[in-house]
Design a protein around this nucleic acid. Structure first.
Lengths: 235, 235
DNA sequence: GAGTTAAGGTCAATGGTGTTGGCATAAGAC
DNA sequence: GTCTTATGCCAACACCATTGACCTTAACTC
């Protein structure tokens, strides 16, 4: 490795690029996030990011260990955004619903980063804070430790799993995504009723529902069962 | 588009490649699956797949519309493997549980492929067969069309979402996976009880549960709510 | 202020990728 | 045996991430 990445806080010399911009880790991450949002996942490349920053692509390697390191830095930013400004109400079911939708939404806002980071355990402060909060909500609601952990595990993994799943289409090129969505209309809606009676009978409902995320429904079903179990154990 | 993809069933001339192998859609997909398993998802490229088949990379475009088409074919193959040999019992909850675990398991058997295909809609026969079967189970159980579609959507997406999430660590290099697990132990298990009371209080339970998939628990919670809703609507 | 150091830019090159147009040849129809 | 054309191959294009060598100049020292 010819080039070493210097930690952001240790940087001293801020030398402007040829085109005059002064780089920083923050600026690069924000620019990358903007590019991904505006041009899709295919729109993010070292070359394009360099061009957007007015810098040579190789300059990025002074800040991150390859594109993978950059993506992880973006993911770290996502966790922070999911939790930023959230305050609990004290009603556990409402709090878990709101928190779940926040996490899901924050990841979906930047799909390609979601895909890469959803299944990683970062162990970083903000991830820990989220886990502590969720466990606190459940234990505060009256769940025993064993139930709290079981439900916590299903809850957090389901949130991240749906985030990654729903991010998948958004991370595709616009072309591939549209052809996927179109398939519900073009293929499923035209299946013969004699061989596919169940799909044929529900074709309209399927076409209306499938392009949207199932996360809210699945989340509600999980919370419903949890509440039922809490009531049963309390009775 | 200079080259047109010929449907598999319309192929007449089976001309061997320079190295003597006779290509087919089936052979290509199976080879791709094997490559992905052995070398990771990054190890799959048109050139390498061509080399493994003893064929020029461009030949693949006679069989699939680009690498994206090949990815869809791989996804179709996974679904097919999940369904192969499955027979319903007539008890809807048991059937949905068994089917879900089958799908989850089939994807996890090829983690890298799961990551590539979990969020794709292929519209191919075996995917359609799976959807028809699930809708049939729900409607046969007595769910109204609207409920059946709603639950079907949550059920299938939950299964695929957990498959992709759980595949994530398996798809990493052994090195990276171990470092993730180690970080979990070293970080979470040692958090101070005064600042992280909930994590500290449940550290042992967390350590026991987190390394395993939450899918069975989440699946059961979904089925539980579904059964409750069926009972309520019937009453 | 002058001198020194090295951070942090740039440039050029390497080897990878998907994809396509043109071409050749052999499989299968007659 | 002849013809057609499906299906293989080749060469090329435009992109990609990454790296080693080089150069400029900001910032520190005296």
């Amino acid at each position: 490795m010819a080039k070493d990445v210097v930690p952001e806080e240790a940087r001293r010399r801020r030398r402007p690029t040829r085109r005059g911009t002064v780089l920083s880790e923050k600026l690069i991450v924000e620019t990358a996030l903007r590019m991904v949002r505006e041009h899709g996942s295919a729109g993010l490349s070292a070359r394009r990011l360099g061009a957007a920053l007015g810098a040579d692509p190789s300059t990025l390697y002074r800040y991150f260990e390859g594109m993978d390191g950059l993506t992880l830095a973006i993911g770290e930013e996502l966790i922070g955004r999911a939790l930023a400004g959230w305050t609990p109400t004290g009603r556990w079911r409402d709090d878990l619903r709101a928190l779940g939708l926040r996490i899901h939404g924050a990841y979906l806002a930047h799909p390609q980063a979601a895909l890469l980071t959803a299944s990683r355990v970062t162990g970083r402060p903000r991830e820990i804070a989220a886990d502590e909060a969720i466990l606190g909500i459940l234990r505060g609601a009256g769940f025993g430790d064993e139930d709290a952990v079981r439900i916590y595990h299903a809850y957090i993994d389901q949130s991240l799993a749906f985030a990654a799943l729903d991010a998948g289409p958004l991370a595709l090129t616009a072309e591939a995504r549209e052809s996927d969505e179109e398939r519900w209309e073009s293929t499923y809606a035209r299946l013969p009723a004699d061989t596919y009676p169940n799909i044929a009978a529900t074709a309209g409902l399927l076409a209306a529902r499938m392009p949207h995320s199932a996360y809210p429904v699945a989340l509600e079903m999980l919370l419903e069962t949890a509440e039922r179990q809490l009531a049963d154990s309390g009775a």
